[in-house]
């Protein structure tokens, strides 16, 4: 098991930055970045995070298949090489956590890893044991972020996670929903509990969170992770049948993934988006959205309208 010390990733990056500046030392990870990666601070602490992370729903659930496990490891390798940090998973995702652990071990546990998983059990009493099992599967001593999955038994689990944060067993606590479900409950929790992160569905078509959730997150210094940036793949499949508009270059977008992802991460309240993929080439495209300029407010409206009308 690899032990990830508190903030060692940040300290490592700081030291690495100085080393590169002074002597041109290259790192195993991050050495292939063509352009600097955009980061945003976690509102509560100021810790910078790369604006593009990685989801694992469906894509990393490959069981013990050695061929597919090695393929997913290459996706992980590319993610870290291009400056990725946040990886999000859940016990609900079948074997995804075990496959992540396999890949992370093969890659020597890249220091940039920001490990985020969830608690997903209707039994409040099982929260701690489920987290312990996730730690074992990932091969990490502690998680950076633990979230209550889809608000399942959220009262009991939040109590457990805040206690774990007090004990130093996790750095951040969050709560998630998806598909636009239970936003009223989410809003109430954001107002009544000191969560560090929320995770919601947000993309150029699903914009419901813009009206209340995102302003509330900004007001209460809560980081926001955007899930389902491609609507489970259906959005990217749909738009890729059409040519990219010529004005996409004006917002620094070279392809459809950048077009869709930059829309998301350019919202001031969004901390990062977590697209999922099974392919190295798609990971390269996704991580491209973490570099270059971001669209402003007017351009964001134009992007959303364009995608909606396709």
């Amino acid at each position: 098991m690899r032990i990830i010390a508190p903030l060692s990733r940040r300290r490592f990056l700081g030291a690495l930055g100085w080393a590169i500046a002074l002597g041109g030392i290259s790192s195993g990870f991050g050495a292939n970045r063509e352009r600097p990666v955009n980061t945003k601070p976690v509102p509560g602490t100021g810790e910078p995070l790369a604006v593009i992370g990685m989801g694992t729903w469906i894509t990393f659930n490959v069981g013990t298949d050695p061929l597919l496990r090695d393929e997913r490891t290459e996706v992980l390798r590319t993610f870290f090489e291009l400056g990725g940090e946040v990886i999000d998973s859940s016990p609900m995702y079948g074997s995804a956590e075990a496959v992540l652990g396999y890949g992370l071990e093969k890659l020597g546990y890249p220091p940039d890893l920001f490990a985020a998983t969830k608690v997903w059990t209707s039994s409040g009493a099982e929260g701690r044991s489920q987290v312990a099992e996730s730690r074992r599967l990932w091969g990490v001593e502690r998680f950076d972020l633990l979230q209550v999955h889809n608000l399942v038994a959220w009262r009991e689990h939040l109590q457990t996670l805040f206690a774990m944060k007090e004990e130093g067993r996790v750095r951040y606590v969050g709560i998630t929903t998806s598909h636009g479900r239970r936003h009223k409950d989410l809003e109430a929790i954001m107002r009544s509990h000191p969560v560090d992160f929320v995770q919601v569905t947000y993309n150029a078509v699903d914009r419901e969170v813009e009206s209340r959730i995102l302003p509330l997150a900004a007001e209460r210094n809560i980081a926001v992770i955007a899930n389902r940036p491609y609507r489970g793949g259906s959005l990217i499949d749909k738009v890729q049948r059409h040519p990219l508009p010529p004005w996409a270059e004006d917002c620094g977008c070279r392809n459809w993934p950048e077009f869709l992802l930059k829309y998301i991460v350019s919202h001031p309240a969004i901390t990062c988006a977590i697209p999922a993929t099974t392919q190295v080439e798609h990971m390269r495209e996704n991580m491209g959205a973490a570099t270059g300029s971001l669209p402003g407010a007017a351009m964001r409206e134009r992007i959303s309208a364009y995608v909606r009308d396709l």
Binding site: I58, T59, N61, V62, D65, L67, L68, G94, H179
Partner: peptide
Amino acid sequence: EDLLMFTPEVYFRL
């Protein structure tokens, strides 16, 4: 559709 946890590739590889 939310209950499908794997890709067709994974299913057929099984």
